[in-house]
Design a protein around this nucleic acid. Sequence first.
DNA 1: GTAACGGTGCACAATTAGTGCATGATCGAT
DNA 2: ATCGATCATGCACTAATTGTGCACCGTTAC
Lengths: 310, 310
Amino acid sequence: MIDSRLITLRVFARCGTVGATAELTGYSPSAVSAQLRELQRALGMQLLTKDGRGVRLTATGRHLVAGSDSLVAAWESLRAAALEAGDQVQSHLGLGGFSTAAARLLAPLAATLRSTRPLLEVQVLEANPSRCFDLLVAERIDLAVIVAMQSDTHVEDDPRFEQTALLDDPLDVIVPSDHRLASRETVTLEELASEPWITEAAGSTYHSLFTAAFTAVGVTPRIAHEAVEWETQIAFVGAGLGVGLLPRLAPLHSAENVVRLRITGKGSPARRIVAAVRKGSITSPLIQESLGILQVNANRIVTARPEDDL
Amino acid sequence: MIDSRLITLRVFARCGTVGATAELTGYSPSAVSAQLRELQRALGMQLLTKDGRGVRLTATGRHLVAGSDSLVAAWESLRAAALEAGDQVQSHLGLGGFSTAAARLLAPLAATLRSTRPLLEVQVLEANPSRCFDLLVAERIDLAVIVAMQSDTHVEDDPRFEQTALLDDPLDVIVPSDHRLASRETVTLEELASEPWITEAAGSTYHSLFTAAFTAVGVTPRIAHEAVEWETQIAFVGAGLGVGLLPRLAPLHSAENVVRLRITGKGSPARRIVAAVRKGSITSPLIQESLGILQVNANRIVTARPEDDL
DNA sequence: GTAACGGTGCACAATTAGTGCATGATCGAT
DNA sequence: ATCGATCATGCACTAATTGTGCACCGTTAC
């Protein structure tokens, strides 16, 4: 209900270039350019200045964008209250989440919603956490599932978003099926201290989790190989190159020669997965229902017995 | 920046019928109907129900409209702040006021603004006070000049508007030029106690003012004739049918045989004229400037010597 | 200097939004 | 009951808005 051109300006304020704004909002660059020009004309304000080969917000523009946070939140809140009062839900819901979340949490959610509310249009977008926040601002999605702390900025106190914890996704150990511990159900990190480890490159969020886990038990692991995708890591492990940590949410698929083991002991690491929505929309009935479904599914996945893992 | 269809809904909430909404907003009835239908579709809410031959807001609709007050106010406030911060003004200004105010206050204001800010589009609408509030809600005008207390509802605590007093418009006495007191500069109401009075019909705001003035001095006037328009009243007085009270703002035009006299004494009546704007917009630079100009002009008119009157 | 990047103007296309009239439904009056 | 008045809405048509794709221009980096 807030003018779409103002939303576009807000996205621009986040990403700084017309091109990126176009990509995020789904418009063409010239459309974004025209929207911003038209917005300035309609408001009688100069919001942008040329800056090198790009454009930059003026002081007025920054003011407007900063103030629009509460406006957008107020609208979300109002919409949620009206929907709740009328016992109705919106007709469209956009969901966003990073790869494993999209696959294991959002896909089931979308399926459930599609069956319980046939005339609701659900759209799922896979996107990394940072992009999820962009998409929330751009109003392309209404709910995002992300890994806490994985976006650059502090989100907790951002006036644009609200978060609720969904689950702590524990990291399991994956070992080759012919590994000496492969028949165990649970292991401790200490038992694996001398193994060659496969992890992501230093600097990634996953890597921090990795080292934090070993620091907790006072062990320094030997990092043998690096992989970016879970699939790659699993393949490395399957090839006997070493062992690795895999979030419970990440499916093992049909990897025949790899076994997943639960970690016990005080070092048991986990990544916190949270749902984020635009501020004010948390009370929306459909958001509440979706969060509930996510919680149930998340708990089911985390507490599943090992043999149920894919 | 708030979606125009929501504005339309707000106007509908005020006046209750699609036709009246169309008239106020400047659309055709079918356009209003289509807008409201589209709004419901976009929000996924049922806002209206059939009610006899008309339509009526649902509970959801009332909720939405009530909550939208603060949303609109927040936007006005934000726009004002951004304009102020950027030392800029909007490109369009709509002014509304009742007949005499429009002629004596708004016309000069519009003229001043047109000369000082050539690229500002100014539009003036003559409308009675109640309609002025409708037009404010419909965003057809941004500033209204009205007679206080003359709209049915309590406006002081309405969350949609803010008011500032402009002037107390004193009532003068008009008498035929061959009247025994015609050469006087000032008179008291007591001196005119026995005159045949011309006033508006009982029940009108002007009539209440009229009786209040005489009550203050303990005199009961004899009401001989009734007129609705000032012009009519002036003509009656000119024809020697009696005397009347005329606001200082109301011009005497070229009435040759009528004289305007100031009233002295404790009974000197006045009507309070205030400017009203949408809540939040009071800090807008252009509104502030306009209010200043209105104040200056208003004071000049009220303090003008009698011979300067038209 | 040249290639890449980022933004904008323009012709054209697609979508949206508004008008005027006709229709239907309801209410009040004769 | 019937007729006319009042209100809303659907429909065909039209006007306006909005978006796209491409070309072009200024800026930056190599």
